[in-house]
Simulated assay, not measured.
Amino acid sequence: MCGKGTCIVQLVVARIGRAHGIKGEVTVEVRTDEPELRLGPGAVLATEPASAGPLTIETGRVHSGRLLLRFEGVRDRTGAEALRNVLLIAEVDPEEVPEDPEEFYDHQLIDLDVVTVDGTAVGRISEISHLPYQDLLIVKRPDGGEVMIPFVSEMVPEIDLEEQRAVVDPPPGLLDEAEAEVATGREETPS
């Protein structure tokens, strides 16, 4: 969102899960590579739905491999349960970049042109899907279709923010079903 000379990008950094205990703590599904920066005590986060927030993190701790948070004003299990499935959103300056040069924020990738290593246009990144084991680039094709490309270095060897493009090296069949049939020797024969 932009206004009066300043722009802010909103990043979904977590989804609130189940209540934990009776004192208002909740489990969270972390959706950021920088939880210590985005989900630390004192952080004020917008929410989706907006009616649930904003929420200020009072405390955080790890218990049995899960991050537990408590928010200011949420003191019991009932209040914690009411927050289940709420998305936590951090507001970030669009010029801010991750410390690791191999990492990117979603807003940096959305709308990048996608081309293969030989320069063939594939489409444009419309969304990033964050799955438990890997992220997927959702690419809108010129014909209106979509293709999902795993965001791993073997398949996305280059992100060029200056040129506003992502270079992909997909295996046969990822972009074109006919390629998959030829690659596996399963070409359909007319009957």
Rank of each mutant, 00 (worst) to 15 (best):
residue 73 G to D: 09
residue 36 E to A: 14
residue 66 R to W: 12
residue 86 V to M: 04
residue 64 S to K: 11
residue 77 R to Q: 07
residue 144 G to S: 06
residue 69 L to M: 04
residue 154 E to K: 09
residue 97 V to L: 02
residue 65 G to P: 02
residue 131 L to D: 10
residue 56 T to K: 06
residue 153 S to H: 09
residue 99 E to W: 13
residue 78 T to W: 07
residue 119 G to S: 04
residue 162 E to G: 11
residue 110 I to M: 00
residue 114 V to T: 04
residue 141 R to W: 05
residue 62 V to K: 06
residue 61 R to K: 10
residue 152 V to P: 03
residue 157 P to M: 11
residue 62 V to Y: 12
residue 102 E to Y: 07
residue 109 L to H: 06
residue 171 P to N: 11
residue 116 T to K: 06
residue 45 L to F: 07
residue 104 F to I: 07
residue 166 A to D: 01
residue 100 D to M: 12
residue 140 K to Y: 06
residue 52 A to Y: 10
residue 125 I to Y: 00
residue 93 D to I: 07
residue 55 L to K: 02
residue 164 Q to M: 14
residue 147 V to N: 01
residue 166 A to K: 01
residue 36 E to Y: 15
residue 132 P to G: 03
residue 156 V to H: 02
residue 127 E to K: 10
residue 77 R to C: 04
residue 120 T to E: 06
residue 132 P to N: 11
residue 42 G to N: 02
residue 133 Y to P: 06
residue 127 E to T: 14
residue 79 G to W: 12
residue 70 R to D: 06
residue 140 K to I: 15
residue 100 D to N: 13
residue 97 V to T: 07
residue 84 R to G: 08
residue 62 V to H: 10
residue 33 D to H: 13
residue 163 E to T: 14
residue 144 G to N: 02
residue 55 L to T: 00
residue 112 L to Q: 00
residue 100 D to T: 04
residue 151 F to M: 05
residue 129 S to A: 08
residue 158 E to N: 13
residue 161 L to C: 04
residue 153 S to I: 15
residue 113 D to H: 03
residue 56 T to P: 13
residue 79 G to P: 05
residue 160 D to H: 11
residue 101 P to Q: 05
residue 56 T to M: 09
residue 80 A to K: 04
residue 130 H to M: 04
residue 125 I to P: 00
residue 156 V to S: 08
residue 39 L to P: 03
residue 81 E to L: 15
residue 125 I to N: 02
residue 36 E to G: 15
residue 165 R to Q: 02
residue 83 L to S: 09
residue 108 Q to C: 13
residue 48 E to M: 09
residue 64 S to G: 07
residue 45 L to V: 03
residue 153 S to V: 15
residue 159 I to S: 07
residue 152 V to F: 05
residue 166 A to M: 03
residue 160 D to F: 14
residue 123 G to M: 12
residue 76 D to C: 13
residue 124 R to L: 08
residue 58 E to D: 05
residue 136 L to W: 04
residue 61 R to H: 15
residue 56 T to E: 06
residue 33 D to G: 11
residue 118 D to Y: 10
residue 62 V to N: 08
residue 112 L to C: 01
residue 123 G to V: 15
residue 166 A to T: 15
residue 88 L to H: 00
residue 153 S to D: 08
residue 60 G to D: 10
residue 89 I to C: 04
residue 156 V to E: 00
residue 90 A to H: 00
residue 59 T to D: 10
residue 69 L to I: 09
residue 145 G to D: 12
residue 150 P to M: 05
residue 69 L to T: 02
residue 43 A to K: 10
residue 141 R to S: 07
residue 46 A to G: 09
residue 165 R to K: 11
residue 44 V to E: 13
residue 145 G to K: 14
residue 116 T to S: 07
residue 171 P to D: 06
residue 139 V to T: 07
residue 106 D to M: 05
residue 48 E to R: 12
residue 48 E to F: 15
residue 158 E to L: 13
residue 60 G to K: 10
residue 44 V to K: 03
residue 142 P to D: 07
residue 113 D to F: 09
residue 147 V to H: 03
residue 46 A to R: 10
residue 55 L to H: 01
residue 99 E to K: 13
residue 123 G to P: 08
residue 75 R to H: 09
residue 46 A to T: 09
residue 111 D to K: 10
residue 123 G to Y: 03
residue 107 H to S: 08
residue 165 R to P: 04
residue 52 A to E: 12
residue 139 V to Y: 00
